[in-house]
């Protein structure tokens, strides 16, 4: 899923203080599972804003609406009536949400309430870990199904580097060395010898570095 967390209230308020009528839009998919941007969290943020704005003597209204997914036109289009008459839409989706809302409702100002962090797994309750950076050329069959591009601090294709000690990465004792995990995983298949083959260099042209990407399904007319 996409993991995103809410910006600090102080930062959100710097933007919202400039506007009167505000619509907070929740998203009920990834960020709802993250417990950061779903319907409940949208209502919480709206309540916080109302209280702060009453104390600060700012007029206007703060309303909420939540859609299933802010990354699809039909859901974003469905809030047209809610957006009507608002000065600011505050999106609680990953940062795709505010961009699509701005595109589909060009008359209104839009701001993100979230910081989009990563493509993640739920490691355990309330802990998400980055597993993929959408590099566009997945090579994890060679690394035991474990991604060194997203999970090695230096995106090495020939790790573990000289900083790997005791199973953790040189950057922090809190961060596992993913190349140690890759080594151990391959060893379970008796394949650690595969790591004597040189990996890379990576073709970054398939990643975001190659320019913004679009994807079309062949045989279908857009």
């Amino acid at each position: 899923m996409i993991a995103a967390e809410r910006k600090p209230f102080e930062q959100i308020k710097l933007v919202t203080d400039q506007f009167e009528n505000i619509l907070v839009v929740g998203c009920n998919t990834c960020v709802a599972v993250c417990l950061t941007g779903g319907e409940k969290e949208a209502e919480q943020l709206a309540a916080e804003l109302r209280l702060q704005r009453r104390n600060d003597g700012i007029g206007g209204s703060v309303e909420t609406v939540t859609v299933l997914r802010q990354c699809e036109n039909e859901f974003v289009d469905s809030i047209a009536a809610d957006v009507e008459g608002k000065d600011l839409v505050l999106s609680m989706a990953c940062s795709i949400g505010p961009q699509l809302i701005a595109e589909r409702h060009p008359a209104v100002r839009v701001a993100p309430a979230m910081n989009t962090n990563m493509l993640a797994v739920v490691q355990k309750h309330h802990v998400w870990s980055e597993y993929c950076v959408a590099c566009g050329d997945c090579g994890i069959f060679n690394t035991g199904g474990i991604c060194p591009i997203a999970r090695c601090a230096k995106q090495l294709l020939n790790g573990p580097c000289g900083g790997s000690q005791g199973g953790h990465c040189e950057i922090s004792a809190e961060v596992p060395c993913v190349w140690q995990l890759i080594y151990e995983k391959l060893a379970t298949f008796g394949l650690e010898g595969n790591l004597s083959r040189i990996g890379g260099p990576k073709n970054w042209s398939k990643s975001n570095s190659g320019g913004p990407r679009t994807m079309k399904k062949e045989g279908f007319e857009p």
Partner: peptide
């Protein structure tokens, strides 16, 4: 190279287009 978080510009982008072996 050591990770940029060790140095005096921890906010820098780490390039790592290649690694030592490539």
């Amino acid at each position: 190279g050591d990770h940029q978080s060790f140095g005096n510009h921890p906010e820098a982008l780490g390039v790592f287009d290649l690694d030592s072996i490539t």
